[in-house]
Nucleic acid binder design. Structure first.
Lengths: 142, 142
DNA sequence: TCAACTCTGATAATCACTCTCATGTTCGCC
DNA sequence: GGCGAACATGAGAGTGATTATCAGAGTTGA
């Protein structure tokens, strides 16, 4: 199968640059907005397209929020890892969890599941925002 | 705060009933479609509204798919638990993971995060669908 | 039965995201 | 440096899931 070559464009570079300057997960629209504010002229469709491509290629991480919005972040770790995200400010800590990987694999095997993949993210309040009463205190699991 | 009372309606009952008869995660639209097929006359908005209310009340579990769609399921376990879901047929196994809970709590504490919550779901191919080469069918059809 | 008060549902609206396709860029090649 | 084919861009239309509207129907306690 012939994989079409990926070209370097001003826009792609600008998006990577914008991602590099932020430390939290952002939606495509937020990233687009920020770029416009920074003087870049990039189309929204282009931002979506590139983020998607980068996510597919593993250059950026994607998370899907509770309301179905995709948020992106350029992570320091290139391999498989998880996130600890602040609900208030989006501040993110990356971490690895070999025990969890093992656990997931074992549970899957016990039930005869194969080709296993999993998601695990932790949400909470970072030190900066702990103690700040977040009016919405309903934390339903799952 | 005064919480308005929840009334029993034919529709609410029918939705719970429909949920009770299925074993996999389904989208609101799929559930609505199934109910119509079963002869129920229920509005789509009503299905959405009730599923949301039930999810908030913990009577049903919600998952958000990669493409941002919310899928619902009435789980056997009422407390906090996780899911092992087949990518092909949606077949779901519930399980508990105390070790993972502990791990999540510890990681959060190490970084000074409080009010911690987390998500963890495992996706794979159930015994029935293992081995079946799912080239293009990577989407959770159903 | 009656009068709240809630729930329903057809439809319009919203919102994130994708598609279209004419035009702009990139890059290997001379 | 210039060419050209193939890929990328972007403005706007389209899509699909979900939510808001709001008048009328259903439910409930008294």
């Amino acid at each position: 199968m012939m994989v079409s070559m990926q070209r370097n464009t001003r826009q792609r570079t600008a998006i990577l640059d914008a991602l590099g300057r932020q430390d939290d997960f952002r939606s495509a629209q937020q990233i687009h907005e920020q770029m416009r504010a920074d003087g870049e002229t990039v189309g929204l469709a282009t931002v979506y397209r590139n983020l998607q491509t980068m996510a597919h290629g593993g250059q950026v991480d994607v998370l899907v929020t509770d309301d179905g919005e995709s948020i992106y972040r350029q992570c320091a770790q290139s391999g498989h890892h998880h996130h600890l995200v602040c609900r208030e400010c989006g501040r993110t800590v990356e971490f690895q969890a070999p025990q969890v990987e093992d656990w997931a694999r074992r549970v899957a095997r016990e039930h005869g599941f194969t080709d296993v993949d999993h998601t695990m993210e932790i949400f909470g309040l970072c030190p900066e925002h702990s103690g700040a009463p977040s009016d919405d205190a309903s934390s339903s699991g799952a």
